[in-house]
C-alpha cells in the first residue's frame, strides 16, 4: 500500500528560498544593530518557525506550490511540505493518523468525513471549482458537448465517483441526462488530465482549473450545465497539528487576499 500511495500522492518538497531569506534577515539585523530599532515589514522577527505539512487536493497542485513559495519568503523560518492526491485518499490517510498540519479538500463530503473522525475542526471555505469538458489539442474526435461522452467509440476518462471530481462528474452527467461510457475511472483528477494531454483519451471531465494548468496540450469545450455543479473547497488545521501557529498562518494565507488572488488567477471561483 505504501508503494502505491507514494507513487500517486505527489509529495513536493521544494528547496525553499529560506536560506536566502534568512541571510537577508541576518544582513538586515546586522545593519539595524548599530542603532535603528527594527527593520520594517517582513524582516520583523518571525514568531513562527518549523515545517507545515499540507495535504491538499490534486487540483490545487500549481496554485499551492506558488502560494507556498510566497509564504516561505514571507516567513523565512517556515518550510511548507505539500502532499497532493485525491482528496478521499488523503482523508483516509488522515483518519488513519497520517502526520499533517493542514488539510485542503476539493469538496464538502470529503472534509465532513475528516471532521466526523475528529481529526480537524472548523473547516473554512476558500474556493470553488466547476467541471469542464476537455479534449486533446486539436480535438481529434470532434467532440462538441457532454452527449459525446456517451459515444462508445470514443476513449472517455472520468474520475471515479469515489473521489470529488468523479462525484461532481456523476452529478453533472445526471443533470444533463447523459449516460457516459467511460473507458477508465481514474483515482484523481490530475491522472485524467495527464491522459488527455498525452492524447490517449478523446474526452474527459476535469476541473476548469486543470484545463488552465494543462495549457496548450488540451482544449476546453464549453458545457452550459457545468455551472450548476459547484465543488466547494474547504481548508482546516488538524486538531493534533504539531505546529499549530504556522499551520494557522498558512490557513490564513490561503483564505486571505494572497490566497484569493492566486486562486482566482488559477481559475478558481470565490468561496
Amino acid at each position: 500500500m505504501a508503494r502505491s500511495t507514494s507513487s500517486h500522492g505527489r509529495a513536493a518538497v521544494r528547496p525553499a528560498p529560506t536560506l536566502l531569506g534568512a541571510s537577508l534577515l541576518v544582513a538586515l539585523a546586522g545593519c539595524a544593530g548599530s542603532g535603528a530599532a527594527e527593520a520594517p515589514g517582513s524582516a520583523e522577527p518571525d514568531a513562527i518557525t518549523g515545517t507545515v505539512t499540507v495535504f491538499a487536493a490534486a487540483s490545487l497542485t500549481g496554485t499551492f506550490d506558488s502560494l507556498a513559495t510566497e509564504f516561505e519568503s514571507e516567513h523565512p523560518g517556515v518550510r511548507v511540505v505539500l502532499d497532493y492526491g485525491g482528496s478521499s485518499g488523503l482523508a483516509a490517510q488522515l483518519v488513519e493518523g497520517a502526520p499533517a498540519d493542514v488539510f485542503a479538500s476539493a469538496n464538502e463530503a470529503t472534509m465532513t468525513t475528516v471532521v466526523d473522525a475528529g481529526v480537524v475542526a472548523d473547516p473554512q471555505p476558500f474556493a470553488t471549482n466547476v467541471l469542464q469538458l476537455v479534449v486533446p489539442a486539436g480535438n481529434p474526435a470532434g467532440v462538441t458537448g457532454l452527449a459525446d461522452l456517451a459515444r462508445p467509440e470514443l476513449v472517455v476518462a472520468l474520475c471515479d465517483p469515489a473521489v470529488p471530481c468523479g462525484a461532481a462528474a456523476s452529478s453533472l452527467l445526471e443533470l444533463a441526462g447523459v449516460v457516459a461510457v467511460p473507458d477508465t475511472l481514474e483515482q484523481d483528477v490530475k491522472a485524467v488530465v495527464t491522459k488527455v494531454a498525452l492524447g490517449e483519451v478523446d474526452a474527459a471531465l476535469v476541473y476548469t482549473t486543470d484545463t488552465i494548468a494543462a495549457g496548450d496540450a488540451v482544449e476546453a469545450i464549453p458545457v452550459p450545465e457545468a455551472d450548476a455543479v459547484v465543488n466547494r473547497y474547504l481548508i482546516a488545521r488538524l486538531v493534533d497539528s504539531a505546529n499549530a501557529p504556522a499551520a494557522d498562518a498558512w490557513v490564513a494565507w490561503v483564505t486571505g487576499t494572497h490566497g484569493r488572488d492566486a486562486l482566482r488567477r488559477a481559475g478558481f471561483g470565490a468561496p
Binding site: 476518462a157 473507458d183 481514474e186 491522472a191
Partner: peptide, 16 residues
C-alpha cells in the same frame, strides 16, 4: 498496480 493503472487505466470488469 502502478504499470496497470498508468497504462491500462481502471474500469470495473475491464481493467480494474
Amino acid at each position: 498496480f502502478g504499470a496497470t493503472i498508468t497504462f491500462a487505466g481502471s474500469l470495473p470488469g475491464v481493467t480494474r
